[in-house]
Amino acid sequence: MSEYSIEFQHLTKKFGEATILNDVSFGIVKNKITTILGFSGAGKTTLMKHILGLTMPTSGDVIVLDTTINKLGDLQLREFRRNFGMVFQYAALFDFLNSYENVAFPLREFTKMTEEEIKEKVMSLLESVGISKEAAFRLPSELSGGMRKRVGLARGLALDPHIMLYDEPTSGLDPITTHMVYDLMKETHYSNVHKGFTSVIISHDIHATLKYSDYIVFMEAGRVVEHLDVESFKKSENPVIRRFLEL
């Protein structure tokens, strides 16, 4: 068993002439919070799409939970994706379903749970992310940005994933809500870590990253510039990172 949940081996991705990821090799440590940091256009989102198998590499391999996912067939890949939970930039809640139904959705699709069991699980998930009973039956359009992210987190956790992915989870939120969401993410991580739980965050929020992450991967122009634990990252002499730290 590898010490990594996710491992990139010489991953290169090209779109036409443009090289988006260039020979990326590193591992995301199991049971830890890793943030992938970088300026816009650094290749962070493309990297995340490779983790999920939504994009396939031009060359190289992506190994997730000891499975080379770029070698899986379409149906196997869909099955494999149940190992992931994801919180999208703007939560991506299904706008035709209320909060309760959004969280119940993956349970109805992938489990044989009864309606009673689903109700119990959904209400406990919503409660764990601080969504009241009353808000549980509101449509996403009737929720604030922070509440939507929390419902998104509850939905991501519904199938007890091994890896939780967050794509710019606090963009568009005020500083107080940002820290509330990060606190919740950290709490979620540590309350699930005994089940073998890894969190990967894509962000460009340097302050929150330093406060909440265990490891930081810094990317620039499709390459990994540094992959360090937080304390070493703070001391990095790399000029690009220094510039980012001084922002």
Binding site: R81, Y90, A92
Partner: peptide, 13 residues
């Protein structure tokens, strides 16, 4: 609004 991506990530075609 990335809802289609959300479906795909869940493994739903």
């Amino acid at each position: 609004t990335e809802q289609i991506d959300a479906l795909e990530v869940m493994g739903i075609n």
